[in-house]
């Protein structure tokens, strides 16, 4: 029997699988660092934002205060505020919005933004979000329990998957010269400030790029209105 699955669904399923594999390596390394497995597992469900969970666990492993770890994690997660603005039509209304908002992460937002119609955006957002809330905690559990069996995931190049995925979803959407310049400028700000600032802040600072190019954004919009 052959299932017909469209391209977007296939990509989303693949990404969920990849997140599961990243979860396995995260679970395994947390346990290796001496952090009890329930901590990354619970975080993966109630926080559901990978980078901040890595950070929380590594601060704990280094003997730091959990409170400091939480604040550092919040700084990393502040980007979800503008994400929320970007996908406000996809998260749903009423009680559904509560779950819809919780499912917001880099992948689900990027998949939603990559679709053209509102219906497709909504479907991609929810499918990716629901897939990740299943695969990510499951992967961490498997990694924590059977981590000894897994050797270095870097040797398979799996660490290149996440940044490649984000680029694959976002780059085709940089439709105007202006968006391209802004994105490039923003990335440069983040990269140049990373060695000097706490984790999370450089990414937030990258949004300053928008203020340097906003005037031109307006000019662009006018042009496209006229066309």
């Amino acid at each position: 029997m052959v299932f017909k699955i469209d391209k977007v669904t296939r990509s989303i399923l693949l990404v969920c699988l990849i997140d599961g594999i990243v979860g396995v390596s995260f679970g395994a390394s947390a346990v290796n660092l001496g952090v009890e497995l329930w901590i990354p597992f619970v975080l993966s469900i109630v926080v559901l934002a990978g980078a901040s969970e890595f950070l929380f666990v590594s601060v704990l492993a280094a003997g730091g205060s959990p409170f400091t770890a939480a604040l550092a994690g919040l700084l990393v997660n502040a980007r979800h505020l503008p994400f929320g603005v970007s996908v406000k039509n996809e998260v749903g209304a009423g009680k559904q919005r509560l779950l819809g908002c919780h499912l917001m992460n880099d992948e689900s937002v990027a998949f939603a933004l990559a679709q053209s119609s509102r219906k497709e955006r909504r479907r991609a957002y929810w499918l990716c979000g629901l897939g990740i809330i299943v695969c990510w905690p499951l992967g961490i559990l498997v990694g924590g329990l059977f981590g000894d069996l897994i050797t270095h995931p870097e040797s398979f190049g799996l660490d290149a998957l996440f940044p490649s995925l984000i680029l694959a979803l976002v780059l085709p959407n940089l439709s105007t010269i202006n968006k391209k310049v802004t994105a490039l400028f923003g990335a440069l700000i983040a990269l140049l400030t990373t060695p000097f600032l706490p984790v999370g802040l450089p990414v937030l600072l990258s949004s300053l790029a928008l203020f340097f190019t906003t005037k031109r954004v307006k000019a662009d919009t006018k042009k496209s209105e006229r066309a």
Binding site: S86, P163, I166, G186, A190, L204, S206
Partner: peptide
């Protein structure tokens, strides 16, 4: 709104860039 929508895109690119290099 336009500004904040573009901000989502810039933040995603920056996340990818930082994860790529560091």
């Amino acid at each position: 709104e336009e500004l904040l929508n573009n901000m989502g895109m810039v933040l995603l690119i920056s996340v990818a860039a930082v994860v790529m290099i560091y």
